[in-house]
Amino acid sequence: MITLLKFSGQTFLLWAIYYFSTLVVKTFHIPLPGSVLGMIILFVLLASGVIKEQWLTTATTPLLKHLSFFFIPIAVELMEWGDLFLQKGYLLFLPLVVSLLVALITTGGIVQLLTTSSSKDEVN
């Protein structure tokens, strides 16, 4: 019961930040997702000590653990696009696979190169 109350209160805090940042983004026509602004605001609030991490973990732990649940209802809308995927799906394969490999090698390569040159003995 106490956990449920805690969860609700903490979720309300997250919701309040989300609501505020969505409002700001809309009012000032900022081309940024409200949730991203909310993330930045929360990070700043945590870093400045206004909000303590313990005030949020009862809500964030289950919410983030089951984050993928929220995408089920969104992904179901793909049924409206079924034909398109059946007809042109094969065309998607190349861009998706090539860009995936490019991302791995770019990030991995750059970070390894930069961190290896600064501390050689650590890697070898």
Partner: peptide, 8 residues
């Protein structure tokens, strides 16, 4: 939305 904010 609130869960996404929690990613911070």
């Amino acid at each position: 939305g609130p869960a996404t904010v929690g990613l911070a």
